[in-house]
Lab assay of single mutants.
Amino acid sequence: AEKTGIVNVSSSLNVREGASTSSKVIGSLSGNTKVTIVGEEGAFYKIEYKGSHGYVAKEYIKDIKDE
C-alpha cells in the first residue's frame, strides 16, 4: 500500500540513511518534489530514493495520498 506525498520545505529536505536525525544524510530533495512512501518509522517516512530507500522527517511531507 504505497502512498505519495509532496516535500513541503522552502529550500531542501535531507534524505537520511535511517529513521533518525543522527543518521547519515545520503541526499536531499527540493520543495514540491513528489515522493513515494513505502513505510514509516517513528517520526520518519521511508521513501523510494535513487533506486533504493531513504528516510525523511514526516513533518516536512504534505498531501499524503494513497496510490
Rank of each mutant, 00 (worst) to 15 (best):
S12F: 11
E48L: 15
A1R: 05
A57D: 12
E40D: 08
T4G: 05
V56G: 01
D63P: 10
T36V: 12
S12T: 11
V7Q: 02
H53D: 05
S52L: 12
A1Q: 14
G51A: 08
K3P: 04
V56L: 04
A19I: 06
G42A: 07
S30D: 11
K34Q: 12
S23P: 01
N14R: 10
S12M: 12
E48S: 11
T36C: 07
I47G: 00
A19N: 04
L29I: 11
G54I: 01
Y55W: 12
G31R: 15
K50Q: 14
A19S: 10
K46D: 02
N8P: 04
H53S: 07
G51F: 07
V56T: 02
L13A: 15
I37F: 01
S28Q: 15
K58G: 02
G39P: 00
K62Y: 13
N14T: 13
S11T: 14
Y55L: 01
Y45I: 03
S12E: 14
L13M: 10
T36L: 09
G31T: 11
D63G: 10
E67A: 13
T33F: 06
I6Q: 05
T4P: 04
R16S: 07
K3L: 09
L13W: 03
A43G: 15
S22T: 12
V9R: 07
V9C: 07
K50I: 06
V38P: 00
K50Y: 14
I64R: 04
G5C: 04
V25W: 05
G51Y: 08
T4Y: 06
E40L: 05
K58R: 08
V38Y: 07
E2I: 12
S12W: 10
S28N: 10
S10A: 15
S10V: 12
I6V: 12
K58D: 01
N14K: 14
E17S: 11
A1N: 13
L13T: 09
K24I: 07
S20A: 08
G51D: 10
L29G: 00
Y49D: 01
G42S: 06
I37T: 01
K46E: 08
A19D: 02
T21K: 14
S20H: 11
K34P: 08
S28Y: 11
G5L: 04
I47R: 00
I26W: 03
L29M: 05
K65T: 15
E59G: 07
E59S: 10
A43I: 09
I6E: 04
L29C: 03
N32I: 05
N32W: 09
A1D: 10
S20M: 06
T36Q: 10
S22C: 07
D63F: 10
S30T: 11
I37N: 00
G39Y: 04
G54R: 02
G39M: 05
F44Y: 11
S52C: 06
S20L: 07
E17L: 11
S22V: 11
K34N: 05
V7D: 02
E67H: 13
G51M: 09
Y55F: 13
V56N: 00
Y45Q: 01
K3D: 03
E48H: 09
I6T: 08
K24W: 05
I47C: 01
H53K: 06
Y60E: 06
A1E: 13
G51T: 08
V15T: 01
G54T: 01
L13V: 12
V35Y: 02
E2M: 15
S52M: 14
G18W: 14
A1P: 11
E2L: 14
K46C: 05
A1K: 06
K24Q: 11
S52I: 10
V9F: 05
G39E: 05
S23F: 06
V38W: 09
G27W: 05
E17K: 08
E40R: 04
A57L: 13
V25C: 05
V35G: 00
G54F: 03
S12V: 14
S22F: 08
Y55Q: 00
I47Q: 00
N32A: 10
A57E: 15
E40W: 07
A57Q: 11
K50M: 15
A43P: 15
S22R: 13
S10N: 11
V7K: 02
G18E: 15
N8Y: 06
A43Y: 08
G54P: 01
T21A: 13
A43N: 14
E67M: 09
E67R: 07
Y60I: 03
T33C: 06
I64M: 08
V7P: 03
T36N: 10
N8G: 10
E59W: 08
G42T: 04
E2H: 10
F44I: 01
S22I: 15
S22E: 14
A1F: 12
L13N: 02
A57T: 06
V7W: 01
L29R: 01
S22G: 14
S22Y: 09
N14L: 11
N32Q: 11
Y55M: 01
E59F: 08
K65F: 08
V38E: 03
E48W: 12
S28G: 06
K62G: 12
S52V: 12
K34G: 04
G27C: 03
G31A: 15
I47Y: 00
G31N: 13
K62D: 11
H53Q: 07
K46L: 11
V38R: 05
H53E: 07
S30H: 12
E2C: 11
V15L: 03
K24V: 09
G18I: 08
S11A: 09
K58C: 04
E40S: 07
E17P: 01
Y60Q: 07
K65S: 14
E48C: 08
S28R: 11
K24R: 15
E17Q: 11
I47M: 02
G5N: 03
I61K: 01
K24F: 06
E48M: 13
K24M: 10
E41W: 08
K50V: 08
I64N: 06
Y49S: 01
N14S: 13
G18R: 12
G54L: 02
K34D: 03
H53V: 13
V15H: 00
G27H: 02
E40T: 08
H53T: 11
G5E: 02
S20K: 07
S30G: 15
K65D: 10
V15C: 02
G51L: 08
K24Y: 05
N14V: 15
T21H: 11
R16L: 15
K46Y: 08
G27K: 01
H53Y: 11
E2R: 07
G18T: 15
A43C: 07
I26P: 00
I37V: 05
A19L: 04
I61L: 08
K50F: 09
V25G: 03
K24L: 09
N8M: 13
G39S: 08
G27F: 10
L29H: 01
I26E: 01
S52P: 01
K46W: 07
A43V: 11
K58N: 02
G31K: 11
S52Q: 13
K58M: 08
G42D: 10
E59A: 10
S11D: 15
K65C: 06
G18H: 14
G54H: 02
S22M: 13
V25D: 03
I6M: 07
G31Y: 14
T33V: 13
E2T: 11
T36S: 09
F44Q: 02
T21F: 13
A57K: 15
K62F: 10
A1L: 13
F44H: 04
I37H: 00
